[in-house]
Design a protein around this nucleic acid. Structure first.
Length: 217
DNA sequence: GGCCAGGCCGGTG
DNA sequence: CACCGGCATGGC
């Protein structure tokens, strides 16, 4: 089921090629980038993961572009500016006071990129940490977000027994080969479906999964 | 004008 | 452990 849903989404929407990042030549965000992930790009992904917390990607994207416009899009530069200045630059992402602190807390962290360690950083919860590990560091961890829960609660009502983040995560990881590229693509496809069809007010008629969905209407 | 968006923290029961 | 209020902007 979990595997066949992936195939259906991939056939229907095509490869997504996440995470969206800035093309340094054009200065524009690329949504289907296969570019090599260097240190700067890694940091950009981490910023995006924090800035998009409970916020539309577009608003997070504006904040990243604004940092770039001000030539501050690097760890070194951001280390040098006060948290107040940072918060004023990322206003568009919402919750900007909290998010500025979260970025500073991450910058102050000097340890290893291990899940349990990262979860100890103020402001980084399981979804943010797993997005960082998967998309910036190619670690095979399956990311759970509100879209994943919404879609699979509708598709498979038995998932209502999955209470915790880790419960949801194990559900997926136990049914899929442990492969970072697969996890990346699957999560990106989930986001696409959530925006296209499986919205809060769903658009079921054109949904690629309508055949097997318990909530089709 | 209300609803929604790729959460997390701190506090409560 | 599960649930809650607070945090905030911008697009539709």
């Amino acid at each position: 089921m979990i595997n066949s849903i992936y195939q259906k989404l991939l056939n229907h929407f095509g490869e997504q090629g996440w995470w969206p990042t800035i093309n340094p030549k054009t200065g524009k965000i690329e949504y289907h980038s296969k570019r090599h992930i260097d240190e700067n790009k890694r940091f950009e992904i981490i910023l995006g993961a924090i800035l998009t917390q409970n916020t539309s990607w577009k608003n997070a994207e504006k904040a990243i572009l604004n940092l770039r416009k001000n030539k501050l899009l690097s760890k070194e530069k951001l280390n040098k500016i006060p948290v107040k200045k940072l918060s004023s630059l990322i206003k568009s992402s919402g919750y900007y006071n909290q998010k500025a602190r979260k970025i500073k807390e991450f910058l102050a962290y000097k340890g290893l990129m291990k899940r349990q360690k990262l979860l100890g950083i103020w402001g980084l919860g399981p979804e943010t940490v797993d997005s960082i590990l998967l998309y910036a560091y190619n670690r095979p961890v399956f990311v759970i977000d509100s879209y994943t829960k919404r879609i699979f609660s509708r598709l498979m009502p038995q998932t209502s027994k999955l209470k915790t983040y880790e419960g949801w995560q194990k559900f997926f990881e136990s049914k899929l080969p442990k492969n970072a590229e697969l996890f990346k693509e699957y999560h990106a496809l989930i986001v696409h479906l959530a925006k296209e069809n499986c919205r809060k007010n769903p658009e079921c008629v054109s949904c690629p999964l309508r055949e097997q969905c318990k909530s089709f209407r």
